Simulated scan of single mutants.
Amino acid sequence: MTTTVRDAATSLVGVPVRAQTYRNLVYLALAFPLGLAYFVGLTLGLSLGVGLAVTWFGIPILLATLAGATLVARVEAELSNRLLGTDVRSRPLDTSGGVVAAAKRLVTARRTWLDAGYLLVKFGLGVVSFAALTTLGSLAGSLLAAPLTYSSNFYVGLRLWNVTGGPFESGRLVVDTLGEAVGVGILGVVVAVASLHALNGLARLSGSITEALLDEESSNATDDVADAN
């Protein structure tokens, strides 16, 4: 029982010193710019490809977009494996049998559309990750900075993008003594630890979604179940 309680306490407060925590933060920080790039590239390519499908120009654009989505999905799988410790198994793009056969497989394969769907989902995950990082980081950072700024002319409130003269202040909360500043700093430590746990949970959720959509073995198992039914 004592060992269990000690392990739980270590797991709870040891999150700031675990390397995996910072790999998770790097993954979450990259999610928004990468997700935005994927969303813009995919929607632009598909729009042009479908819109110009009646001409000879549309088909190559559409095929290039789908092939690019598949290749980028492989990169995302590797990024998740390296930073989040997932085990997403993927296979390279099959180009055997000639251009026509490869193009047909690309368009008709369920894997292609799962990859494209994942890239769209990645944009949503990126928005959530960005909001979580900025909100929790701003809150924890402002509280932790209170002991250093409470008596200065630098404003370190909980609101974003506002810097004015005055003590540490947020709404009705005004910190202008050393004791109050230390108390707010201790609260900041608690908030920072809780925030890291929340961000780790978000990273694990992102990894689970990546495994569900991009793992080749999971996809094959789903197909086998569907065929059996």
Rank of each mutant, 00 (worst) to 15 (best):
N162G: 03
N153V: 05
E216N: 10
T21Q: 04
G165N: 08
L36I: 00
D87E: 15
A198S: 05
P147R: 02
T149D: 13
S47Q: 01
I61D: 08
N229L: 15
D87L: 09
A194N: 01
A221C: 05
N200D: 13
V75M: 10
R204A: 09
T65N: 09
T108V: 14
G85A: 06
F39P: 01
Y27C: 01
G171E: 06
T65M: 06
F123E: 12
A67K: 08
G207Q: 00
E180F: 02
D223I: 14
L25D: 03
V163W: 00
Y155W: 12
L158M: 09
V5M: 11
F123T: 07
N200H: 01
N162K: 15
Q20K: 11
T86A: 03
L48S: 01
R105G: 08
A145D: 08
T43R: 03
L36R: 05
L202V: 03
G141H: 10
Y38E: 15
M1I: 13
A226V: 12
L196T: 02
G126N: 10
S170V: 08
S96C: 11
V175W: 00
V189Y: 06
A181F: 05
L178F: 15
T2L: 15
R18D: 10
L173Y: 03
L44F: 01
E217P: 00
L106I: 05
L199C: 00
A101D: 15
P16G: 06
R105K: 11
I209F: 10
A203T: 07
F39D: 04
L42M: 11
A145G: 11
E78L: 13
V75D: 08
S138I: 05
G207M: 03
S208A: 15
G141A: 09
V175G: 00
R172A: 14
L62A: 02
S208F: 11
G41T: 07
T164N: 08
V156R: 14
G45P: 04
A212F: 14
A198F: 00
Y27A: 10
E169P: 06
D94T: 04
P60E: 09
L114P: 01
W161P: 00
W161G: 02
A212Q: 12
V107K: 05
V163G: 02
F32Q: 13
G207R: 01
N24G: 12
G201S: 02
V13F: 14
V13S: 03
T55P: 02
R105E: 07
L46M: 06
G165R: 00
D94G: 09
V17Y: 09
G141Q: 04
A146I: 03
V72G: 05
R111P: 08
G85K: 07
V5R: 13
T149G: 11
L213R: 12
K122Y: 07
W113T: 04
L148C: 04
V13M: 07
T55C: 07
I209Q: 13
G141R: 05
A31W: 01
Q20Y: 00
S219R: 11
V193N: 04
R172P: 13
L48W: 07
A19F: 04
V174S: 06
L158G: 15
L12V: 10
L205N: 01
A228F: 09
L48Y: 06
V17M: 12
A73C: 05
